[in-house]
Design a protein around this nucleic acid. Structure first.
Lengths: 343, 343
DNA sequence: TTGTAGGCGTTATCAA
DNA sequence: TTGATAACGCCTACAA
């Protein structure tokens, strides 16, 4: 039956053309020292015979896999899928392959993912850390084997791992400053686990902006949740109970801000009149919510491209990863109606 | 230096324990016929020595990869990332790995992706077709080699490929019927390339509902675009020029519906008073747009799980894929304010 | 229950 | 420029 054809190997091609397998191998890799005609002949025969290279054999022999691993907290978020799309593009353009797994925000699963990546012999690893990861020892086996590991977005300070992220401090500083300039003096900040740089830095930026404008940081205006729509709706209910109400709200992501706006509006609060609101990420929803959301724009797709390029350049050149310690991408404040007070 | 340690192989373990490599290999695979103590000893030594199996060698020998390939149009859409998350979960739980690539909606790239998947010796393939794919010949090499290929969501009728999708016809029939029941008689339908089942079926459902209620299909009420926010904003402008205006709008996805609502509202059109609107997908934005969007809910995560389970079951049992020809998942009409007319 | 030995398909070294 | 040959690390008849 036609389905059971045996796979063609370089030996089959060699036999057919009366050359050695070594020559076929060289021809197929575009090796320099192979006769032009021989090469042409071999490539043609390979095509005709339906040859496809066996990457296992090749990887086994060459001791690398051409596979890049990615570990992210979750795949189904607008930001993450943008990042992955950017990574995939670069990786694919460079004839690498992509293995992806998600930690589902737990360190436990992240450790397992890392093990699987190691066993799959990835040539390099891109990681955005889980919510509760408290150390990065599980990536040490990679360092020992000189397999580059690069952190992006959710990073951790460490000599061995280059990092790619945005200046979360500056972004939060700017957006909080903006709220203050709109006349806000009691600004609630909703953020997540400050173990993660992205949240601790945003908190730091928030505090710095307050201080700059002579506003005292008030612990009771700080809320920590997981920034999901559900959790933030609950937090919004608590905010409604505050007396006096705050006049500003800075959420560490857009999903949280949108959820809060919905709850607050339903309770009759005017946005931005009573409470000016700002988010973070420039998710698609930020242009759909009414009023449109003031937020920080930073391009996940670009972050993915940059991370993948850094990794692949290193894999190809084997030299420049030690120098690059961190890479900070651009972000920008986008002012929309949710924070635009009439003066 | 510590970083350059050589990888441990089963031979290293064998030598250390004075057994044969074959025994080590068997012990590590939990083979039946291995002495319990020997096994215990070997597993312990492997652990201590930092052994990790070399999947290339193993794959080369066993002629399978434990890798599942996924090709999707784009990674960065809410629906797709849900699907991928579902696939990843199942695949990971079953100790398979995932290679992902995106066709960016072009058949050309899809063909390349398929080739790469073939070279990577995936054990099976999950595919959602690109926008302009006109045939599926590029998947035939998989069939020839008995590598299962399963289509999901954007499928094509074909004997060799099982399909997983929702009843797009029925869903569109229901949602159009709902609009009609709300009093709509001139309902615009915006959809995409009817080459793809998801769009042709939705169109068919739309037409069937009209006919059922004695409304003649009007070609001038049908718009084809790529359903992006930008394209749909332009289409909405055209709708505004119609005279008389339509009184209903059914978009084949939520992004399109949301974009239209935004343009129409800005032009002073009342939703649902002047025009009742419905979308498709139940994207997160559908609960953020005002008024909230009537839509069809279907779970991408679940579709991913089902697809991956079907594939893996087949890979493990090697028998039941021929029988399963198509698998239709549940979907439901969700009625929200965008279509709820006062009576 | 364990060991021997050959081969999976490729690449790299060395020699011709 | 080409060929012979030996790995790469694992798995599995087959034999013991």
């Amino acid at each position: 039956m036609p389905g059971s054809e045996k796979e063609i190997t370089i030996y089959d091609i060699a036999k057919k053309l009366n050359v050695s397998a070594a020559t076929v191998s060289r021809a197929l890799q575009n090796h320099l020292r192979v006769n032009k005609n021989t090469k042409k002949m071999i490539v043609k025969a390979a095509e005709e015979m339906g040859y496809r290279s066996n990457s296992f054999a090749s990887n086994l022999r060459r001791k690398n896999s051409n596979i890049i691993g990615v570990i992210v907290p979750r795949l189904n978020s607008s930001f993450t899928s943008d990042v992955i799309a950017g990574i995939e593009k670069v990786v694919n353009d460079n004839d690498y392959n992509l293995i992806i797994s998600q930690s589902l925000e737990t360190m436990k699963k992240e450790i397992n993912n890392a093990k699987a990546m190691l066993n799959n012999r990835v040539d390099g690893l891109l990681v955005s850390l889980a919510y509760d990861t408290i150390n990065v020892e599980h990536f040490e086996p990679f360092i020992k084997r000189r397999i580059p590991v690069i952190f992006f977005d959710r990073v951790v300070e460490h000599d061995h791992y280059p990092q790619i992220y945005i200046d979360n401090f500056k972004a939060a500083y700017e957006i909080t400053g903006h709220l203050i300039e709109q006349g806000c003096t009691r600004i609630v900040h909703i953020t997540a686990n400050v173990l993660r740089n992205v949240y601790s830095e945003r908190l730091r930026g928030y505090k710095a902006a307050l201080e700059k404008h002579g506003i005292q940081f008030d612990e009771s205006l700080l809320f920590i949740n997981d920034l999901s729509a559900n959790a933030s709706a609950i937090t919004a209910q608590e905010i409604l109970k505050m007396n006096p109400l705050p006049d500003g709200l800075f959420c560490a992501n857009d999903a949280s801000a949108v959820s809060c706006i919905q709850v607050l509006k339903k309770a009759g609060i005017k946005i931005p009149g009573d409470i000016a609101v700002a988010g973070f990420n420039n998710d698609p929803v930020s242009c759909v919510i009414e009023p449109n959301l003031t937020t920080i724009n930073y391009k996940g797709f670009e972050m993915g491209e940059v991370a993948a390029n850094l990794l692949i350049n290193h894999l190809v050149n084997k030299n420049d990863l030690q120098q690059t310690h961190s890479l900070i991408l651009r972000s920008e404040l986008i002012i929309r109606e949710s924070s635009a007070r009439e003066k």
